[in-house]
Nucleic acid binder design. Structure first.
Length: 294
DNA sequence: AACTCCCCCTGGATGC
DNA sequence: TGCATCCAGGGGGAGT
């Protein structure tokens, strides 16, 4: 399930391989993939042919392909969210049951690129502009701080929530309006590393606690980007060439429910927050006050 | 207004 | 073995 580090890995691979090339084909194969259809991709699509990929950007979990226009200043953005199971691949994977989950087929200067998405949670739409932070304009109000682009603003964003909300810190980390890019994997890892229980109310964190969590967000995200993301058994994330990332070997709590905590040996517990299970260690993770026990 | 919950979907894991 | 059921998760919208 691609979160910020996986999308960033895909972004940099795409940038290396495709920037400067011209779009020769844009074929949408899944109706659900363009369900928002913000700027009627089916109609506008043909107008994009011949344009050059001038940049590959990312904000949160959104991948933003910048297509320069034929007229000066004319730019369009093909925005892609990979959802749960979306992958960009150079070669289509083989399915044992023979099903084809290709949702988009693009070709840049004779090089094919496919969006492969079995669970169809992914989506593609066209955008005419980005805001001052680099967010697709129509998503401006829905996305908070990207911790990879703006590491120094994470503590501020969390602090702002803390003064007006008593939501569980885990729910806050998952909320894209606060921090854009974290999903279940990285938010669990962040909370273990900052030694805060997932159900701890954000309002009960003091300044140091907030800073601890913010530092862990930046640390975990940066390390995961270096290691090219996390690939799980379900293979829902593989890079452009079909290779796995390696941050999964750094996971200390995610996917380790009922296994022994790597730090204290206690069984990893889990709790349902905002409809998702959080794995955590009830000994190592309590309030922020416990953070310097190591 | 702020927040939670349900739904969309499929493949893999688990249960009987 | 094979079938049925469960589970995972992001985001949007309905509901509280």
């Amino acid at each position: 399930m691609p979160e910020l580090p996986e999308v960033e890995t895909i972004r940099s691979d795409l940038a290396l391989r495709f920037i400067g090339l011209r779009l020769e084909m844009l074929k949408i194969l899944g109706e659900r993939t363009i369900r928002r259809n913000k700027t009627n991709l089916e109609e506008v699509g043909p107008e994009l042919l011949g344009r050059q990929l001038s940049d590959a950007k990312r904000y949160g979990k959104y991948l933003i392909l910048e297509l320069s226009g034929s007229q000066i200043g004319e730019i369009s953005y093909l925005v892609v969210h990979l959802g749960m199971s979306g992958r960009f691949v150079l070669q289509l994977p083989e399915m044992p049951n023979g099903r084809d989950h290709t949702k988009m087929h693009v070709r840049f200067s004779e090089e094919d690129l496919y969006l492969w998405d079995p669970r169809t949670f992914g989506e593609v739409f066209l955008e005419t502009g980005l805001d001052d932070l680099g967010r697709p304009m129509t998503l401006s109000k829905r996305l908070g701080i990207d911790p990879y682009l703006y590491p120094h603003n994470v503590a501020g964003a969390l602090g702002e929530v803390a003064v007006r909300s008593s939501r569980a810190i885990k729910a806050v980390l998952l909320d894209q309006k606060v921090i854009a890019g974290l999903g279940n994997i990285y938010s669990d890892e962040v909370l273990f590393r900052s030694r805060v229980s997932p159900s701890f109310p954000v309002s009960a964190l003091d300044k140091r606690g907030i800073e601890r969590v913010a530092e862990a967000v930046v640390e975990v995200v940066n390390k995961a980007v270096v290691l090219r993301g996390s690939s799980l058994k379900d293979k829902s994330y593989m890079d452009l060439s079909g290779r796995p990332g390696s941050y999964q070997s750094e996971h200390l709590v995610y996917g380790r429910y009922s296994k022994a905590c790597m730090v204290c040996g206690e069984d990893i517990d889990r709790v349902l927050i905002a409809g998702r299970y959080s794995s955590f260690c009830s000994i190592c993770q309590q309030g922020a006050d416990r953070w310097d026990y190591s």
